[in-house]
Amino acid sequence: MKYALLIYSSEAAGPQTEEEMMAEMPQWFAYTEELDSAGKNLGGEALLPAATATTVQVRDGKRITTDGPFAETKEVLGGFYIIEAADLDEALTWAEKIPASPYGSIEVRPVMEIPGA
């Protein structure tokens, strides 16, 4: 099974300054390395703040572009991993270990398997 671990947090939570971010980095490297060496890491990215987001919708064949993330909520998507896990419990265990879990929320979503793809 493939899972997407979607990392949400309030941008006011977690590391705020450059130094605090740098201080947290080793935890992220360690986590990613752990995923890698377990052969579970299928990819992922960290995202820039929601203020840099742009949302696109097509309505009646016309593109509508708006400033900002799709949902104006306090907790925003900050990054994601795509992992390989035997089942949800394994995925949840990996989610728990994500460095942002103490101040954010990790949404675990099974990745759709496209038959024949």
């Binding site: 820039l48 703040p49 203020a51 840099t52 987001a53 742009t54 400033d67």
Partner: peptide, 10 residues
């Protein structure tokens, strides 16, 4: 400033 930051980042 916020607008310029978005211009750069995005």
């Amino acid at each position: 400033t916020r607008a310029k930051e978005k211009i750069r980042a995005a």
